[in-house]
Design a protein around this nucleic acid. Structure first.
Lengths: 192, 192
DNA sequence: CTTCTAATGCGACGGTTGTTGCATTAAGAT
DNA sequence: ATCTTAATGCAACAACCGTCGCATTAGAAG
């Protein structure tokens, strides 16, 4: 059997995911319902419910389809530079219109599918970013925990954008990066 | 007019807010609906819709009713100690069962009322916490931005608990606090 | 070209959500 | 005690959400 690309299944999926992106762009996450997505995709509600379950499932699939499998962390030549660039990427992804990322996070509080997709994403990203820390090991105290450093560098961005919902601050990416590096150099993330 | 405490209005409010807390404790946030709260409170649905609007409004009111007006940040004698203690408070509030705080955050993605309540709460808390930084000014570079330091110290906790949804880590409060203080001492939060 | 199977379309249904108009009640005011 | 007003109760309603059984169709296999 094995559905082939170009078959009806693949076509329907493309139509539906396009509809999700379009609805998100025009009316935002709050107005995103299975009903409207199905209508826009020219597909029956039931099909969407059967294949994606709920809005969170749709967003998760949009995210998967966007791939990102080829993503790699920035390489600017310095640890602080890399983390700053990474933070700018995060800020851009969140303040983009429409932001699939922001929608996915909002959905993750209602949908099991969205929550696990979000988890997978973050695990993947942090794992890849560990390379940034590895490149800079010679500058850091031995035993420095890469994940802790990465979280310290990026958490202030998420805190501002996702939780406080304040507008993007052009200085914050660099400041948070420098702060994390200073702390790391001081041995704050050494695991015993 | 001015409703008096003990009047019907106040009594209904108390019943409803108690019902919210009880439902939250027994069935969690996902199962929290206007319907079940009203039923438990022995009150008609319509009353709840008219006075609180939605679940987010209920949680916001629970939060307001809990007061917290008398809250003040910890004072342990050292900046790192204060921030560590603050982080432990945050972690406890989030991992408590039931956690009104966690529910309020989840609701803030669906409800206008919950979002603004959450904003007010955080503004208030960070404003009060600035005193912690003021007490330690003599240890910090001149021009250090209190709010930035506080965010750097606490953001890793929120990141782990709220976004990554990983279990509480007993070492994180202290580690995040030390990292933020190290960065501050290095001048990372000096505003030009 | 025919056959077989999984995906989709379709309509109907039960349950939930939130709203509205109107009657009723509680509680303060006179 | 009576009056007045705002809060609440009540029932009906429309809209929406998600599910189900069954018919239909696309597309791969022979």
């Amino acid at each position: 059997m094995t559905a082939r690309p170009g078959g009806r299944t693949a076509r329907v999926r493309a139509q539906v995911l396009d509809a999700v992106r379009a609805e998100l762009a025009e009316h935002g996450f709050d107005a995103l319902t299975v009903e409207t997505v199905a209508a826009r995709a020219g597909v029956h509600r039931t099909t969407v419910y059967r294949r994606w379950g709920d809005v969170g499932g749709l967003l998760a699939d949009v995210f998967d389809a966007t791939g990102g499998d080829d993503w790699s962390p920035p390489d600017t030549g310095s640890l602080t530079g890399d983390l700053t660039a990474l933070n700018h990427e995060i800020q851009d992804a969140y303040t983009a219109e429409p932001s699939v990322m922001a929608a996915l996070i909002a959905a993750s509080f209602r949908s099991e599918a969205a929550e696990s997709a979000q988890r997978r994403l973050w695990d993947d990203r942090y794992a890849r970013c560990e390379a940034v820390v590895e490149r800079a090991r010679h500058v850091l105290p031995p035993g420095t925990d890469a994940r802790r450093l990465l979280v310290a560098a990026t958490a202030p961005l998420y805190h501002r954008l996702v939780l406080l919902r304040e507008p993007a601050d052009p200085l914050l990416p660099g400041e948070a990066a420098r702060a994390a590096v200073l702390a790391a150099e001081g041995g704050a993330f050494v695991r015993l």
